Computed example of a mutant assay.
Amino acid sequence: MIKYPFLEKGATIGVTAPSSGVDEELHNMFKQSCERMEKEGYKVVCGETVWTQEKAKSSSAQKRANEFNNMMQDENIDLIIPPWGGELLIEILEELDFEKLNKKWILGYSDTSLLLLLAITLKTGIATAHGTNIIDLRGEFSDETTAMWQKVLSTEIGNSITQYSSDKYQKEWQHSNPSPCVFHLTEETQWKTISTDKVKIRGRLLGGCIDIIRHLIGTPFGNVHEFRKNHIENEPVIWYFENCDLTTTDLRRSLVQMKLAGWFENCSGILFGRSDANHPVEDYFIEDVYTELSNELQIPIIYDIDCGHLPPQITLINGALAEVKAENGKGTILQHFKE
């Protein structure tokens, strides 16, 4: 059974940095995000870890874990959104108190939340949300794709919600050239497929930043077999991945390792987000990686979807039952909040 949190109006957002905090020169930019959320009717509570950054992390593993545990157990905090990603969230996993985590949304992507998101859903069956982080919600308005995070997290158990592929995406970050919606959406979005032009996939969503979540393999925090058995009655799984930094060969190694670890058993399809990584090695291109994987697993693959470090992002719920369609460069994701 999957346990879905629910986002109420006027909710209190807890901001903690289980990976990277915010450098001092960027404090004002982060404060804009908090002010924007307060104008939207939310309350914002920031932990101490948000304001510090040293040696590639916000603070010690114990302090980061303690702050996260406390926010998850605090009944006055309704959801948690880290400021952004980072590098070393994995250090805190063994310090998390999974048995005492209250049912509340965690929203984010990259290291800070994706490793945390997948591990929590696999261990507890609590649904978690892959999508925007709070630093990217500081604009005067959000694009239609990003703005859906509120509606998605306010979906009631038993109901469904549909999201659509974006019209345009951002090719590169321009923090020195701020825009009213934060992102500079200049490139045409094209969802692409392997093997057939029209694809339809149904299954339970699981995934995240592949650079990070691959490190869960072989640990107590990445037991996909137990998750299938205990929480989704062995229903098919749709995996979604986004690649932050991996070359094509490193991505291929990671996917083969996942296959050997049994992560792709009863997998109905795989979604890959847009990436400015995927750098070819010799004549081995990203399309080769996707084609080989599709042929080996005999499943459809959709790629360049709205997911990851080239925003905007669709809000994907780990554990939700999804129907994904792609045709003529466009796509839809219908998520059912089925227990």
Rank of each mutant, 00 (worst) to 15 (best):
T52Q: 10
W239Y: 14
E91F: 03
S254W: 11
K31S: 12
E25R: 02
D167C: 06
L26I: 01
K57W: 07
I92D: 09
R214F: 10
F272S: 06
T249N: 13
G139L: 13
R274C: 12
Y4F: 15
C181K: 14
E91G: 11
L310M: 11
D23F: 10
E188R: 15
F241L: 08
E75P: 00
N66E: 15
E67A: 07
D283W: 09
W105E: 04
D111L: 10
I232G: 03
H215F: 15
F264A: 13
L122K: 01
I314W: 03
I92P: 08
C244A: 14
M29V: 04
I210V: 14
A277T: 05
L26K: 03
K192G: 12
N66V: 13
F285C: 06
D136I: 00
N223V: 13
K9C: 01
S142E: 11
T186W: 05
T12E: 01
E94L: 08
R36K: 07
P18S: 06
A129R: 01
F141Y: 15
A261C: 12
P180C: 06
G158H: 02
G85N: 02
K104Q: 09
G207S: 00
L255C: 05
S59L: 07
I135C: 09
V152K: 09
K330F: 04
S165L: 06
K57M: 10
N295E: 15
K151V: 04
A147R: 13
D167R: 15
G125E: 03
C46Q: 00
I238T: 05
G47W: 02
G331H: 01
T52S: 05
L206K: 01
D23C: 02
T155F: 07
S20L: 08
L137W: 04
T291H: 11
V22C: 04
K330G: 06
E233I: 11
D283H: 04
G41T: 04
K31W: 14
N243S: 05
T128P: 07
A322V: 14
E265N: 12
I92T: 05
S19H: 08
P5G: 05
K39P: 04
Q190A: 09
F141N: 09
L260I: 03
T247N: 11
N133A: 11
F6E: 06
T189N: 12
V22S: 05
G108H: 07
F6C: 02
G131T: 03
L310R: 01
M71Y: 09
E226F: 08
Q335D: 02
G131S: 11
F221H: 14
I210W: 02
T189M: 11
C46G: 04
N28Q: 12
E156I: 11
K63D: 06
I161F: 14
D23G: 12
E38P: 10
I286S: 03
Q32E: 13
V289P: 07
N243K: 01
I201N: 13
I126P: 00
